[in-house]
Write a protein that binds this DNA or RNA. Structure first.
Length: 480
RNA sequence: GUCCCCGUCGUCUAGCCCGGUCCAGGACACCUCCCUUUCACGGAGGUAACCAGGGUUCGAAUCCCUGCGGGGACGCCA
């Protein structure tokens, strides 16, 4: 059996988004699972849509996600080039070939004309397709007209049996030929359209499996016609369900922040993202037994296209965070330090201890920045919940008493963690407070917020003078 | 509008192909309790779904039909 080959073929028109990344991931996992090769091809035929720098960005993001390719524009391979703009001569040669094999003709209809045709068809409740105006021009007529008028090449779709594919995800799908219409394969600019270019490249680069989004499904039938005309081997298709936004809308348009780049900047881990993405539209089976946490290698072992869903999935940010947290917990302090952007690099021993304190409830690397807010003096102006807590009688009393207790206790025992704890305890006994009522005033006084790291160890890091100063400041605020 | 596809908790899903073991299992989120004289972490529970209606069958989430709902495509975009 020949080795499987599959590919990810983005166009360099923007950032790598979650939807694209999921497609790339599934193709990658399929290649890993079958011991095949994963190829990267940049589809940059439409010069107008190319965004400078986006190819570099996409490559970076894929590498960061650890979706490494075996062949691609940056590393070459036996069936290159891997950038479509460098393959133009191939498409031109294939256009000449297809002219001999099947009916392909020049179409001189202007975009305005075509637009009108579509509107008319739409109002007549008919299938919207090319009306065939240029189909019956003679060779002589066409040649003459071509001297003065721009034209595209269309491939004629003759009557016949429905075009069918066996899709691994969707099963047998077929389409009547009369709804297809004669379609454009070469633009008037002399550049092939996606349909043609993509089919040619997949065949010539010997892809055994084409794994892509469901939005390509209806194009597939036209591509099959191209393969048949050129007597090229039709790859096995797998059309993945789309990913929708949390509100049910479209992903890329509504949630523009969901590029891989931005998730990285928000402190998400590649293994967290790939784990989450793999579970969007695919499941390894009984997760009650296997759990849901997988690294890339485990995903590769388990992955199976036959288990991919047909229906679309909605993106869930909470679950992404959760899974990311699971992977973050696996990292030790040094690994976190490695990941942390430069502003945290100058770690003192105190900072390291502080990081340990916040690590457990951090879901992303950036959550670790909470440390900063705890190491800086709190401000109560922004936080209503904190204000509410400090403005109670109990808080006032507890803080007043706590401060004087703390002052004397610190004299007897300079270890903050002990003196503070004992102070809070005796305040609790004296006023009759316990649990939240007792601890919240002190927590808020010291950290400024209701949720945060363990109070006593944090106090140890801050030191006695700082703790006392914060308590006093909070007490002043409480009285004011 | 036309064509294609899909429809299990709010969300991701297991189960569906090979009807009974499913008054439907897991996970996120939410709620409760435990742990901790605090929040979080961790642990234990709980609320919550087979789109609707017809068939077929002793029996249907599972098979068939219709309706409804959702998505995709209909470009000289990819």
């Amino acid at each position: 059996m020949t080795q499987t080959r599959t590919r990810f073929a983005p166009s360099p028109s923007g950032f790598l988004h979650l939807g694209n990344a999921r497609t790339a991931l599934f193709a990658f996992l399929f290649a890993k699972h079958t011991g095949g090769r994963f190829i990267l091809r940049i589809e940059d035929t439409d010069l107008e849509r190319i965004v400078a720098g986006s190819e570099v960005g996409i490559l970076q993001d894929l590498k960061w996600l650890k979706l490494e390719w075996d062949e691609g524009p940056d590393r070459g391979g036996p069936l290159g080039p891997y950038r479509c703009s460098e393959r133009m001569h191939i498409y031109e040669a294939q256009l000449k070939r297809i002219q001999k094999e099947t009916r392909v003709y020049r179409c001189f209809c202007s975009p305005d004309q075509l637009d009108q045709d579509r509107k008319l068809l739409s109002s007549q409740k008919k299938v919207i397709k090319y009306v065939g105006r240029c189909l019956n021009l003679s060779e002589a007529q066409a040649t003459e007209k071509a001297k003065t008028t721009p034209y595209v090449w269309r491939m004629h779709v003759p009557e016949g049996a429905p075009v069918a594919i066996e899709d691994i995800v969707r099963g047998h799908v077929e389409m009547q030929r009369d709804v297809l219409g004669d379609f454009v394969i070469f633009r008037s600019t002399g550049v092939p359209v996606f349909l043609f270019q993509n089919a040619i490249d997949d065949a010539l680069q010997e892809m055994t499996h084409v794994i892509r989004g469901e939005d390509h499904l209806s194009n597939t039938f036209r591509q099959v016609l191209i393969y048949d005309a050129l007597k090229l081997k039709v790859p096995t298709f797998s059309h993945l369900p789309m990913i929708g936004a949390e509100d049910g809308g479209k992903l890329s348009k509504r949630l523009g922040s969901l590029s891989i780049k931005e998730l990285r900047e928000e402190g998400f881990l590649p293994q967290g993202i790939t784990n989450y993405l793999a579970l969007l539209g695919w499941s390894p089976g009984d997760t009650a037994v296997t759990g849901e946490k997988f690294n890339l290698e485990e995903l590769g072992k388990a992955f199976d296209l036959n288990r991919v869903h047909k229906g679309r999935a909605l993106f869930d940010f909470q679950k992404l965070r959760f899974l990311n947290q699971q992977h973050l917990h696996d990292l030790n302090l040094d690994q976190l330090l490695e990941l942390a952007p430069c502003k945290l690099l100058d770690w003192s021993a105190e900072w390291k201890s502080a990081i340990e304190l916040v690590k457990h409830d951090a879901a992303t690397v950036n959550d670790l920045y909470k440390v900063e807010s705890f190491l800086n003096k709190p401000s109560f102006d922004q936080n209503e919940a904190a204000q509410k807590i400090l403005k109670t009688d109990n808080a006032r009393k507890a803080l007043e008493m706590g401060i004087s207790e703390f002052k004397t206790k610190v004299h007897q025992n300079p270890a903050v963690e002990i003196s503070l704890k004992e102070s809070i305890q005796s305040v609790g006994k004296a006023i009759g407070l316990k649990g939240k009522d007792l601890f919240f005033p002190f927590r808020v006084a010291i950290t400024g917020v209701e949720a945060g790291p363990e109070l006593i160890p944090l106090a140890k890091i801050l030191g006695a003078p700082e703790v006392q100063s914060r308590l006093e400041k909070a007490f002043e605020y409480s009285k004011a």
